[in-house]
Simulated scan of single mutants.
Amino acid sequence: MKKNLEVLSKEQILIATEETIRRFGVDKTSVTDVAKALNVSHGTIYRHFKSKAKLLEGTTEKWLNETIIAPLTAVYEDHSLKGAEALKTYIQTLIELKRSYAHHEKELFDVYAKVTEEAADLVEQHINRMTSQMSEMIELSDFRVSDPDRLAQSIFLATTRFHHPSHAYEWDSPTINQEFLDLWDLLEKGFLNKK
């Protein structure tokens, strides 16, 4: 029995897309595979998403919001953490999440890496959400900084090697954790000094 378009939501399509990607991988997943999983025609999927690229963007956005932004928001909202400790925990959480998904959700991480190369607006929006939270954490601290937005962006960029998917091949290095701690020590001593 075919599902009615009116009752088929974008959320249902995105969930089915995630499941299909987990089963076949991103390169072998087609819009037709997703449609079959939902028992609808591929035209139904195209009414919600104009192309496979848009479907993958939607899936990636959902995945980022649920698996990256939601846990980071919990750190951001944890008022028991203060100053440099809060920022360090935020970045370490980001790093741990990305590493975990690179290993344990490889198929969806691969979609994220692929979309990162092709969907600049989505990636910019994702980064802006994180740096906005970091900026607010900086504003609430007693750091000696005149431009919290700029510092948040700088910290994000300085730590890119530890969380950007193009560097995933480096994350299994036995020295990667110490390299992050060394970098953080420099950041904390140089930019995150108290007023």
Rank of each mutant, 00 (worst) to 15 (best):
V40I: 02
S9H: 07
I176Q: 12
L94I: 03
F143C: 06
A113H: 13
S80N: 13
I45W: 02
T60W: 00
E124M: 14
D182F: 02
T175P: 00
K52C: 04
I95Q: 05
K50D: 04
S132F: 06
H126F: 08
L97T: 15
T89A: 10
R161W: 03
T60F: 00
D110K: 13
Y76P: 03
T20V: 01
R161F: 11
L140E: 10
E57T: 12
H103L: 13
A86W: 05
S41N: 15
T160A: 09
A84E: 06
D142H: 13
E61V: 11
K3T: 05
E139H: 01
Q125V: 09
R129Y: 08
E61D: 10
H79M: 09
K28N: 11
R99Q: 11
I68W: 06
A16M: 00
K10E: 10
N4T: 15
I91E: 05
A74E: 14
G25N: 00
T67G: 07
T175G: 08
I21P: 10
G83L: 02
E124N: 14
A152M: 01
T89V: 14
L94R: 07
T89P: 02
W171Y: 00
S141L: 03
T59D: 03
L55S: 03
F162Y: 12
D121R: 08
V7P: 06
L5C: 06
F162R: 01
H167C: 08
D142G: 14
V123F: 05
K189I: 08
N39S: 12
N177M: 12
V123L: 08
F49C: 00
D185F: 01
E136W: 04
P174T: 08
H164E: 12
P165L: 09
Y169D: 07
E77F: 05
T60S: 05
A86T: 03
L94P: 01
V111N: 13
T116R: 15
S132N: 09
A16D: 00
L181R: 07
K194V: 15
E6K: 13
R23P: 03
L186R: 10
Y101N: 15
I95A: 03
F24R: 12
L56R: 04
E107R: 11
M137K: 12
K189H: 08
T32H: 10
K114W: 15
R99S: 04
H79N: 11
K194H: 12
L81E: 02
S100H: 14
R150Y: 12
T32K: 14
R161D: 13
E66A: 07
D147C: 00
H163C: 01
E77Y: 07
G25L: 02
K195P: 14
T59G: 06
L64W: 03
L140T: 09
K50A: 13
V75K: 00
F109W: 05
S80R: 12
H48D: 01
T60A: 06
Y90E: 02
Y76V: 05
K88M: 10
S132T: 12
